[in-house]
Design a protein around this nucleic acid. Sequence first.
DNA 1: CTAGGATGTGACTGATCAGTCATGTGACCG
DNA 2: CGGTCACATGACTGATCAGTCACATCCTAG
Lengths: 214, 214
Amino acid sequence: MPKGTFSNLPEVKRRRIIDAALEEFSANSYGRASLTRITRQAGIAKGSMYQYFDDKFDLYCYLLRLAGERKLAFISEAIEALGPGPDFFAMLKAAVVGGFRLAREDSRLLALGNRFVLEMDPGWREKVMVRLGLRGESTIEEWARDGVRRGEIDPGIKPSTAARLIWAASESVGQELAAGKLSPDQAEAEFTALIGVLERGLRPRAGEKGEMNR
Amino acid sequence: MPKGTFSNLPEVKRRRIIDAALEEFSANSYGRASLTRITRQAGIAKGSMYQYFDDKFDLYCYLLRLAGERKLAFISEAIEALGPGPDFFAMLKAAVVGGFRLAREDSRLLALGNRFVLEMDPGWREKVMVRLGLRGESTIEEWARDGVRRGEIDPGIKPSTAARLIWAASESVGQELAAGKLSPDQAEAEFTALIGVLERGLRPRAGEKGEMNR
DNA sequence: CTAGGATGTGACTGATCAGTCATGTGACCG
DNA sequence: CGGTCACATGACTGATCAGTCACATCCTAG
């Protein structure tokens, strides 16, 4: 976490630092991002950065937490707008598309998160997850389990299989959105198309018993 | 390409160098992989490496080409074993699962390729593709176009959508296989389950016109 | 006005890296 | 034997980095 000195900083300066760091970490992998460049960009001395954060890792985790919180806010809002007891697929689409909306606020926040999941060393990723107190991407799998229970997903399909497909689809579009190859609108349309196919594949069919696994 | 001196090397030494380089580049991203470590591991002087290759990039491309050729061999073999005029989904499954078999020969070859697609800088990836004379991942999309023509895929689904789903699914499983989180057998089973769902989602349904996009 | 804690600073340390180059070695030819 | 040529070598260069630290500056409390 940032040290007390950071929260004491005048709003403008803090903003400048966050901005510079976000710029650097969303454009480079953790390893290639340079504190030296960040401090230069923010117009502060290198030593100052160490008044505010323990080290590079600490700064990175702070930013990632910021990004995560903003994204979660978008997702929650989108889901709540759905009203009570939403269908699995409706919820999914709302969540993913809601998350994409983060790109409209600040595409660097989205890019930061996407870079994180591409980060190569799994042990390092785990360390970050622990620091941030997060579980893995098991949420979708839980939703899928509920979906099966409610008869919205074919019981012959393992929840983990459904979750993997959905996760992979959302990552695929999310990466292109963050890379700027897709506009937010295009990304939304693209994911809608994907989820349409997946829904066809996952929903139970009348008159079938569902014996695709095991 | 490697210089002439490299091909003149005694088999054993060449093998040692390839081995050390493969180890390093499959365990680290391009940026973090160290030529110094490779030469140390291979038991040669640093200068010698520059007798064999132009630079780090040259060495990397050489390895990636090796990996690509081996993988393609596995894929071709699997597809040919299918006989003439295979169904889209049969071909797809054979290709992907065939590719996975590379892991049995040398999991580092698979890991190298997977690391490449995770590599962060798109401009850099493009540079490598150009050097190796490869086109993008458009092959699957072409297959999908053929699949639509032959009525194996719902005409309401864009080939690019189908291709994206399939690519994402194979990447998802491939990454875990390369990371050692899945055995080759598990990976094969996992992908079979995924493609099962996708097939249900993509195949035309009797009595439907197919109006999912546009 | 002054003492002292809090905060700002940038030159410095030690590490690592890709790539270079002067020098060394050994094999083969005349 | 001497000369030449292909290859081998590792100390060196210049760059970059995270992180440190002795010192400067500011602010507040007494």
